[in-house]
């Protein structure tokens, strides 16, 4: 049972962390390498909010808004000129990640900040004591996934976005402002990133480099999933479970790189990855 919970919670956490990256990659085919830094912003939002004394339940909205604004700035000034140069966009966003991290260092210092977990202790699930905060991550992931799918499938914005994903030129000729769609998706993606940073802080510490450790795994999961959120959930489940298994039964270090290696191998064999089209 402990193992099943490890699988489920690891999947949920991976999904929360990758969804923002996916939003951006799915719509713009651009990988936001500043995602690590954006996660860190979320962590610091959590830190500031608990200091100010706002209940942490509302914190995730603040985190989202902060990320949305940062994302909007990044899109407007850095990413927009680079749409035609996707490899340069990787580099520019990576450089931006360095800048954001250094700015965080200058404001908050190098040190580790601590954020009280809003949910202490454990719950008993079918006889296994398990960290309640990790369990809470499962419904949180389901919520995020649900909201994104509802947004993409049930709203005008979603329809336009999917049109841009499928055929940008056609979408433009139908009068959809694809620049606007990209702008909004990037901002939402960054917002999801900070929100993820907010959610993972109780599990780890808040320090400027907290996001970097997540970056490559998140990146590889998104690569494997193409542009479907369901595929992403599947990839998180499969690779997350393998990571847990390898970490427990073989070696935690190998477990740490399991996702990257398996995702790269998957891409070599099936360049389209998990997405079926």
């Amino acid at each position: 049972m402990g193992l099943v919970l490890d699988f489920a919670t690891t999947t949920a956490i991976l999904f929360i962390v990758t969804s923002g990256l996916m939003m951006i990659f799915g719509v713009m085919q651009i990988v936001n390498f500043a995602h690590g830094a954006i996660l860190a912003i979320g962590g610091y939002v959590a830190f500031v909010i608990t200091r100010v004394g706002i209940p942490s339940l509302y914190g995730c909205f603040f985190a989202f808004i902060a990320g949305f604004l940062v994302g909007a700035l990044i899109e407007r000034f850095v990413v927009r000129p680079l749409y035609r140069r996707p490899l340069d966009a990787i580099l520019a966003t990576w450089g931006l990640g360095i800048v954001i991290i250094q700015v965080i260092v200058m404001i908050f210092g190098r040190g580790v900040q601590l954020v009280e977990s809003p949910l202490q202790g454990t719950w008993n699930i079918l006889g296994t004591e398990y960290s309640s905060y990790r369990i809470i991550m499962i419904p949180v992931a389901l919520c995020i996934g649900g909201v994104i799918i509802a947004l993409l499938n049930g709203t005008r914005f979603g329809i336009k976005t999917r049109a841009v994903i499928m055929n940008e030129n056609l979408a433009e000729s139908l009068g959809i402002n694809s620049g606007m769609i990209r702008f909004i998706s990037f901002s939402i993606g960054a917002g999801l990133g900070t929100m993820a940073g907010f959610f993972i802080t109780p599990l780890s510490s808040v320090d400027p480099y907290m996001g970097v450790a997540w970056l490559t795994n998140a990146f590889m999961l998104v690569m494997v999933s193409g542009h479907s959120f369901l595929a992403l959930a599947g990839a998180c489940l499969v690779f997350g479970s393998i990571q847990v298994l390898v970490s427990i039964y073989v070696n935690p270090v190998l477990g740490g790189m399991a996702i990257s290696v398996l995702a790269a191998a998957t891409l070599r064999i099936r360049p389209k990855g998990f997405s079926h089209d």
Partner: peptide, 9 residues
Amino acid sequence: ASDWTPIIS
């Protein structure tokens, strides 16, 4: 590393 889950298990 920051994820100690496997070791705690």
